[in-house]
Design a protein around this nucleic acid. Structure first.
Lengths: 337, 337
DNA sequence: TGACATAGCGCAAACGTGTGCATAAATAGC
DNA sequence: GCTATTTATGCACACGTTTGCGCTATGTCA
């Protein structure tokens, strides 16, 4: 009679045991004989017993839930951390709660509040650019890993890419090819990632003796459409940039679409480099050069840190920055004389 | 003294109320004066009160949790349903539990069992090809929407694309261009989607008087690498196919990468059509022709059906099939004489 | 003035589980 | 055969919340 209404007491009554014994048997407690354990497990299967996680949470005060807060789950970066976290969770018997903020601070707060009601074991977050104050104070009470985006006021560990170094790498590559008028397409400086990439861009130019031209900097929302609009905008400047740095794969996709539509030759008319790699970068013309993030390693690291043992805790460093690498393809070339 | 240990009783004691009154005030019950509600809410904020969802679940017998079970969250199709479901959940005050099976039936079962412990309000699933028996019986006890993949033994509503019609559409397009030797790259027939696509492929060929050639059919695991291997395999046949039908975007990506590497001209040497559209299909050569799924509508429909009112329930039809559409780009052309 | 409706709130009982402690049974030591 | 020790199990309470029911004020009407 498998009913999901079966409870520990029901099982105990059927087996002629105390419900405490059944509880211990199911959680593989030492003081229970193997024979009893077997009988209990068999009966549990037979009756379709499903534990009530609410009762357990009430009793123990904490759940096996892990939260993942991201702005956009369709974005490959965040989907990858979701995948890794889901993997580790299932290995360790945890559950994964997915919170998608859509970059809305109010929604982010509501989602986080709901998550806290489950007394989660930890949380991995990529916060909005300007989170609500309550969001930050809520985060103080829970084990928290910041992923990619870093917010200074949040305590806990941080796992991200070295965005400034990545931008530097991209710009140095373009400089080495002779480019000087380099357009920058990026996101708001309110985002730690946006700020770091822009800083890397500016500093690298300045060190090469090139003054960053505000007219060649387009800050825009991080969408495919945004990338197209920004590319259109920059390529309309005069003097026109001879190279473009598109600071995310989505922006790169939009930029590429627009360049295709505008019949501009790459790298003939303009060199293009993207921050963040993607499988389809091979397929655009002679390939789209990119600074590649070790996204798989980042995600694995974040997940591992969340589940780290408390012993290994706070060994000095509180942030892990992984280095990007340059993947040269056909979209960048020496500037025409 | 905002501590997450604050409980209803604490609030009640501080306000000189009974904890039942506090509970009613927070859940906006009728019989509580507005004044009391305001006082309670203020105190709750001040003390950083966070309800214990476990206690609530224990008392009410059900949670506001919604489960999403998918084989792969990085896959754009499943990421899209996740996004839509997350949207609707946050609007309605539900939580989203993410279960990633990685197409492993055993893991799928474990994840589902853990989910059931939270007494979820419903679940959206894309099951593995051959689920465990227990998985199916567990699913019988919960409101369930099947997404894309359909398993006959699971009761509940179904939302998917008309895979057979989609394959038919692709093959008819190729037939109309004069192709007869059409290669098929797809996934296992154990998957409902795989079976339907292959069926559409075969039937359409037969109706056109072309006998499906087993040598032109490659069934492979649904990965980028698989697509590349399958393309290599089919293009090695003699006579060599003049067109390829790649039955998923990932397979298409792999196929395109291999064709690029093999220096084969598209559509000069071979026409290519994909099932499932993607933004970057515009960027490969002169574009990759595809049969496009209304993925956004599918996801929205699945989510809406999960949250439908019980009144509207079971109005005869139990499955929603949405029609695909053909997006012609440059990768298909009339067969050379 | 007394009966009565109503709004606002308190009492107390559950919900199912984990766990400290006591207890019973079995074994071993003398 | 009696005690000490180990092994296996039962007892009872607590966790924080929701909710049916009953109680108290306050006002209303006869």
């Amino acid at each position: 009679m498998p009913s999901s209404k079966t409870t520990l007491k029901d099982l105990a009554a059927h087996l002629g045991l105390a419900h405490s014994t059944v509880s211990r048997a199911l959680s593989n407690h030492d003081a229970i004989s193997q024979d009893t354990k077997d009988r209990v497990r068999h009966a549990a299967r037979q009756y379709g017993y499903v534990a009530n996680s609410g009762a357990r949470l009430l009793r123990t005060g904490h759940s096996q839930t892990v939260g993942l807060l991201v702005p956009d789950i369709v974005n490959e970066f965040y989907a990858t951390i979701a995948k890794n976290l889901a993997d580790d969770c299932s290995q360790r018997g945890h559950q994964l709660m997915l919170l998608v903020s859509d970059d809305d601070p109010q929604r982010e707060l509501k989602l986080l509040q709901a998550l806290l009601e489950t007394r989660p074991a930890g949380v991995v977050v990529a916060l909005t650019a300007v989170p609500r104050k309550e969001t930050l104070s809520h985060l103080a009470g829970v084990r928290c890993i910041q992923f990619l985006r870093v917010h200074a006021k949040v305590q806990g560990l941080t796992v991200g890419a070295d965005d400034a170094a990545a931008a530097r790498m991209a710009i140095e590559h373009l400089l080495s090819l002779g480019h000087r008028a380099i357009g920058y397409v990026g996101v708001s400086e309110a985002l730690s990632t946006g700020a770091a990439r822009l800083r890397g861009y500016k500093e690298t130019l300045e060190e090469a003796g090139v003054a960053p031209d505000p007219a060649l900097i387009a800050l825009i929302e991080p969408s495919v459409q945004g990338g197209a609009r920004a590319a259109a905008q920059l390529m309309d400047r005069s003097p026109r940039p001879t190279a473009l740095f598109l600071s995310s794969p989505q922006l790169a996709l939009g930029g590429a679409q627009w360049l295709n539509a505008a019949k501009l030759r790459v790298p003939g008319d303009v060199s293009v480099i993207s921050y963040g790699n993607s499988s389809w970068f091979d397929l655009w013309g002679s390939g789209l050069t990119a600074v590649s993030l070790p996204i798989q390693e980042l995600a694995a690291t974040a997940s591992a840190l969340l589940f780290r043992e408390s012993g290994e805790e706070l060994s000095g460093q509180t942030s892990v920055l992984l280095a990007p690498s340059l993947v040269k393809r056909g979209s960048t070339a020496r500037m025409r004389a």
